[in-house]
Design a protein around this nucleic acid. Sequence first.
DNA 1: CCTTGATCTCAAGTTCACTTGAGGTTGAAT
DNA 2: ATTCAACCTCAAGTGAACTTGAGATCAAGG
Lengths: 157, 157
Amino acid sequence: MNTHDLLTMGEVTRRSGYAASAVRYYESQGLIRAERSSGGQRTFERSVLRRLAFIRAAANVGLSLDEIRTELDCLPGDRTPTKADWARMSKHWRRRLEEQIHALERLRDNLDSCIGCGCLSLQRCRISNPGDAAAAQSSGAAYLPKVLRRDPPRRRA
Amino acid sequence: MNTHDLLTMGEVTRRSGYAASAVRYYESQGLIRAERSSGGQRTFERSVLRRLAFIRAAANVGLSLDEIRTELDCLPGDRTPTKADWARMSKHWRRRLEEQIHALERLRDNLDSCIGCGCLSLQRCRISNPGDAAAAQSSGAAYLPKVLRRDPPRRRA
DNA sequence: CCTTGATCTCAAGTTCACTTGAGGTTGAAT
DNA sequence: ATTCAACCTCAAGTGAACTTGAGATCAAGG
């Protein structure tokens, strides 16, 4: 359909599953790069598909575009990433995934014990009650692992 | 500090860790209830702390306020929840958590095999590439479990 | 009574991650 | 040469989940 191996917007949207607007947005945010044809239309290197796929996977595990950019910045961007490039990144990922998994498991187990033991009073339950019984403490101690914690005392837009 | 066991806004914010604005917002959204004093200030039943704690925990595992409301609607709201109430809810939760955990594990394992096998070409990798090699297919098959999938072909605000 | 800190309401602003729309160009096929 | 889908840009809108700010009121101690 196309000459050498530059992709058109249409091809990218079809093969990545992303909407054109999203692809443009990612370009504007510096997550992917695009050349331009004589007439000003975008042309993409094939590697952009890899990047988009990565973006989706990363977004799916909860990374923000900002974090994703950081990760992607470690990749060459033009040059095809080497094994070492990916390996380095995957280390980050694995850690992130592991943390998230463990956090969820802890949550699940605590939930079980909450119901199972019959205490069921979330007043004493560590999952959900950062401050009731321990109200006097500084800020409601952080019971949840930080990967899962979303703004215990304050912070976050 | 207070009479019987009605809580003031200040006590709720201190003990829940939530900002007053958030507490008001949750009330406006029907996630929690508040009585009013003669002068129009909010008074909360103690059970609101439980609810807020639950809201935090649920939000932490990725539920939207809408979903959380649905869950909370199963609880009495005024009456102290019974063991059965909690047990019913925890079933939902457990499923949700399990799904999320499994999804992450699959992702992690796929990532490993990507790097491990040396193929490292995300062109063939199922985690990240929903459509490259399989471009001809309908919409880029859904490789990720749906709990983790965020809008493969289209959709979503 | 007065002051001071805690609350109140209501409208508007914020961030993230995109989408939508208007109005205009490109480029491949006929 | 014409046509028409595919692109383009840029500004504005969306939804979720809150926060901020202004201006006013409440409640409790001195």
